[in-house]
Computed example of a mutant assay.
Amino acid sequence: MKVLLVNGSPHLKGCTYTALTEVEKTLQENGIETEIFQLGTKPICGCIGCNSCYKTGKCFMDDIVNEFVEKAKEADGFIFGSPVHYAAASGALTSFLDRVFYSGGEHLSYKPGACITSARRGGTTATFDQLNKYFTIKNMPVVSSQYWNMVHGNTPEEVKQDLEGMQVMRVLGANMAWLLKCIQLGKENGINIPEKEERQITNFIR
């Protein structure tokens, strides 16, 4: 079993990365393979709604989004980490997730997902709410911890001093590992994902 952890911060080893590595450590201790996927600093264009992915199965902008979706096909769970920018997820991560879920969301469906947020002071809960909405539109079980998944600090060293936040990260990792093992055990005993109903789409007009 493998979990992809996405660092939505432009800083390679900053505060968000520090929180993600605490989750990663616990996952590995529980026998789960991990990979941290860095968004980096290159511009990530937002979705333009061209719908070409409906025909080809991938976004026509052949960049880091398609690279991630290919990895997602083989992954069993996902954790997306973001710094707080103006009480929201980073612009890069937002553009990335819009396109990932639009062009390749089927490869994340029914796989556990979680998010973590990192801030100096405020905006974490708004960001947490924003990111969780991606999971709940694609039939993804949402993995929780003993508190909302957030850390506080202005530097990696300060994040490590957030003892409660770091504990929340470890509990999140343990809960993700537990759920993945439960799902795997279910599959081995013939319990499969629910049968899909035909999609009904309505607009708010008469």
Rank of each mutant, 00 (worst) to 15 (best):
S9R: 06
K71H: 14
L172C: 06
E164W: 10
D62P: 00
S144I: 13
I32P: 04
G57C: 05
H107I: 06
D129M: 04
T136G: 02
E67K: 15
S145E: 01
Y54L: 06
W178K: 12
T34W: 00
M166L: 07
L179A: 05
F78D: 01
R170K: 15
R206T: 05
L12P: 00
V151W: 06
E188N: 14
S109M: 08
C115W: 00
R199V: 12
I191C: 12
L180R: 02
N7Y: 02
T41S: 09
M61P: 00
L97R: 01
V100F: 04
L27H: 03
F80V: 15
Y17W: 14
E67T: 15
V65N: 00
N132M: 11
G123S: 04
Y17T: 04
T21P: 01
K111C: 09
F60I: 13
D98Y: 05
M169T: 05
I36D: 05
K111H: 02
Y17V: 07
F96M: 11
N66L: 12
T21C: 04
K2C: 07
K138S: 10
W178R: 10
E197P: 12
L5D: 02
M1Y: 09
L12H: 11
K187L: 11
H85G: 01
L20D: 08
V143T: 12
N7P: 06
N203F: 14
V100I: 04
V168N: 09
V159G: 11
A174N: 14
L185Q: 03
V171Q: 08
I137E: 00
K58C: 07
A174D: 14
T41G: 04
M140P: 01
N51R: 11
P194F: 06
G186T: 11
I193L: 08
I137H: 10
T127N: 10
K13P: 06
E198I: 13
N139A: 03
